[in-house]
Design a protein around this nucleic acid. Structure first.
Lengths: 207, 207
DNA sequence: GTTTCATATGTCAACATTGACATATGCCGC
DNA sequence: GCGGCATATGTCAATGTTGACATATGAAAC
């Protein structure tokens, strides 16, 4: 029996999710954390290798040494039956609210401090980032969508299709939002200039 | 001159953004990190108090002791001129790509492992959370929108309006996405069953 | 009257995450 | 043949973040 299997961290479940689809080396996992898993969860290799060791201690994954190019033995990991059970029960568990950390919105929240022109250049940066991500999602979704396996709710591609669809929808909304903000800033900039020249500085408050 | 002002952390800028709108105690900041700033950035008081001390060391905020109900002296913080400059230049700086950490999508990505019925209950949980958040955003936006200050690009409420509009749009997209997923799961669940039992089945709607 | 809640500030251990350092091989282009 | 890149796994110090512990007062609910 493996040591008592403590509940893995979020990263642990991200790794189990990858290994449940197919076996991988730690290096493969690190690459997947850029794309496509990196679209919603990221980690560096320096976090992945220790986490794999912890998962193995808990009996949720195991490895076999294979041929490879590194200076150390290359290890290929696979999920165990216990690992798959842990993953399944995590998916079925209540979705706890997660801390939000959105740097883009945080910056935008203080955008009233800078001139409308600078605000517009900020929004344009956001817009192009969202557009690029949208294009990536759409391309990947087209590939998944063409595969008939993506209609089978028991196939990994089914889940890939759901997540990609969400990505496309949220990025489309973000692109439209940025375009709306540019309109607002255009109008506000003009308006502001017109009655810019004198008004008192009263005590302002905001929420 | 204060000690050399190192660049504050993201949390530091969140706090500066709050104090740039008006003075607050550490406790007030902690409450604001639930709502409305908590909509895009969160922190506990155990993180806020040390950060305020660091910001003060860097000369970006200062405090005055006021009457209060706590066991220790109550401190009211305000942003300094240097703090406002730091915040402004951060807003104008390039938007660095941020690590994504989306637990909801991470779970969904492994949803192929569970029965469609369980998947549906997961999506229903998401849906109700998104709907609740959407309602909160809409209510807050209605209040901000009614204030004419929210049209002035130099007023905090202008920035509040932009961020809330983004919140409304993204949550609306999320609600529609969840409803789309429920449709997909309905159809896929039926399809799955009918395949197994060799029964005929009707048409489905488009992607 | 007593429990509970909001006010109010702090510390600390544990865990999560990043970025730098460390290492060695094979392949490709120049 | 040499530089750069992909393969491949690891450690470590520093920073970010959480959850628990600690404390005291006034007001409202029961």
């Amino acid at each position: 029996m493996p040591p008592e299997a403590s509940i893995p961290s979020h990263l642990g479940f991200a790794i189990l999710g990858l290994l449940a689809r197919r076996q991988r080396t730690g290096y493969d996992i690190a690459k997947a954390m850029e794309r496509p898993v990196g679209y919603f969860w990221t980690a560096r290799h320096s976090q992945i290798y220790p986490e794999l060791a912890r998962l193995e201690d808990a009996g949720l994954v195991r490895h076999r040494v294979v041929d490879g190019a590194g200076p150390r033995p290359t290890k290929r990991y696979a999920v165990t039956a216990a690992g798959k059970r842990a993953l399944r029960s995590w998916v079925a568990s209540e979705l706890e609210p997660q801390p939000v950390r959105d740097l883009e919105t945080l910056k935008l929240w203080s955008v009233w401090l800078v001139a409308p022109e600078i605000a517009k250049s900020f929004v344009r940066q956001s817009l192009s980032a969202h557009k690029a991500r949208l294009a990536a999602y759409e391309e990947e979704l087209a590939g998944v969508d063409a595969d008939t396996d993506s209609r089978d709710p028991g196939h990994p591609l089914f889940a890939s299709r759901l997540t990609l669809e969400g990505g496309v929808r949220s990025r489309r909304a973000a692109v439209e939002w940025c375009e709306w903000m540019l309109d607002e800033l255009d109008w506000a900039g003009d308006h502001h200039r017109s009655d810019r020249h004198r008004q008192g500085h009263g005590a302002r408050r905001g929420t």
